[in-house]
Simulated assay, not measured.
Amino acid sequence: MGRIFVASGTEAVLGAPFRLLCIACKRRSETPAEAESEWFFRPEGNPQFQKILHYSPEEGQWVAPGPFEHVLSWNGSRGTRDLQDLSVFLAAVGRDHAGHYVCGLRRNLTFEGYTYSLARNQSLRLAVVEKARRDLASIVSEILMYVLIVVLTLWLAAEMLYCYRKVAAAAPPPDSASEYLAITSESKENCGGVQAAE
């Protein structure tokens, strides 16, 4: 009745804020539900997970004492008893925050006559780096953007040149234009003479 999507691995910059994303979407939004979330952490090389955060709409958040105290906070759904966003926020990433995380969901779905309970867990690995590294996708997208700008500029220049040639070809030669002006002035003089004769 529910599905969680979360990144399987990601990097955070040392000393910078970072959001650990976890989304728990319900397949049938019309079904009433109540949910709560727990986050667990296992440092690199440690075999056991420890609970670092618990959040419920009634009680709010609880953060375990230790390296996450005053750093980790709930950053997911608020103002509803059915949590869809289970994300948490690290105000400043430290070296001791690198490791494996588990985002847990417990949801009670209320149907006519009975309640259905489900639990889902999803894990992710967080690596802490000194500087942000650009991934291949951002580099490729930036190159494609510059290529597109050059192509559009060349296309615009070609269109302007084409339009200029079309306008120049359609314009009358200068001699015929002067003859037209002379004929127009003569016709005006004749009209004046006719009116004077009347």
Rank of each mutant, 00 (worst) to 15 (best):
Tyr146His: 09
Gly99Cys: 00
Ser123Asp: 13
Tyr162Gly: 06
Val129Pro: 01
Glu112Ala: 08
Thr10Trp: 14
Ala92Gln: 08
Ser138His: 10
His70Lys: 05
Arg134Leu: 07
Arg125Glu: 12
Leu136Lys: 15
Ser117Glu: 10
Thr10Tyr: 15
Pro174Asn: 14
Asn121Gln: 11
Glu189Tyr: 02
Glu142Gly: 02
Phe41Lys: 01
Arg120Tyr: 15
Glu142Asp: 08
Ala35Glu: 05
Leu105Lys: 01
Ala127Asn: 09
Ala98Val: 02
Pro43Arg: 02
Ser77Leu: 00
Arg95Pro: 04
Val71Asp: 03
Asn108Tyr: 00
Phe111Ile: 03
Leu20Ala: 00
Lys26Leu: 01
Thr115Arg: 10
Leu144Asn: 12
Gly60His: 12
Ser29His: 03
Arg107Val: 13
Pro57Met: 08
Ala35Ser: 13
Arg165Gln: 07
Ala98Pro: 03
Arg27Asp: 07
Phe68Tyr: 05
Trp155Ser: 15
Ala7Thr: 14
Arg78Asn: 03
Thr31Val: 14
Ser37Gln: 05
Tyr101Glu: 04
Cys191Lys: 05
Met145Cys: 14
Ala92Asn: 11
Arg78His: 04
Gly193Thr: 01
Leu152Ser: 07
Ala158Gly: 14
Gly15Ala: 09
Arg28Leu: 10
Arg165Ser: 11
Leu83Lys: 03
Trp74Ala: 04
Leu136Pro: 13
Lys166Ile: 07
Asn121Asp: 10
Ala16Trp: 05
Tyr146Ala: 07
Ala158Thr: 14
Gly2Asp: 06
Phe68Glu: 01
Ile52His: 10
Ala182Asn: 11
Phe40Gly: 13
Ser117Asn: 08
Gly104Asp: 00
Ser8Leu: 04
Ser176Lys: 02
Asn108Leu: 00
Gln195Met: 01
Cys103Pro: 06
Cys191Val: 05
Ser29Ile: 01
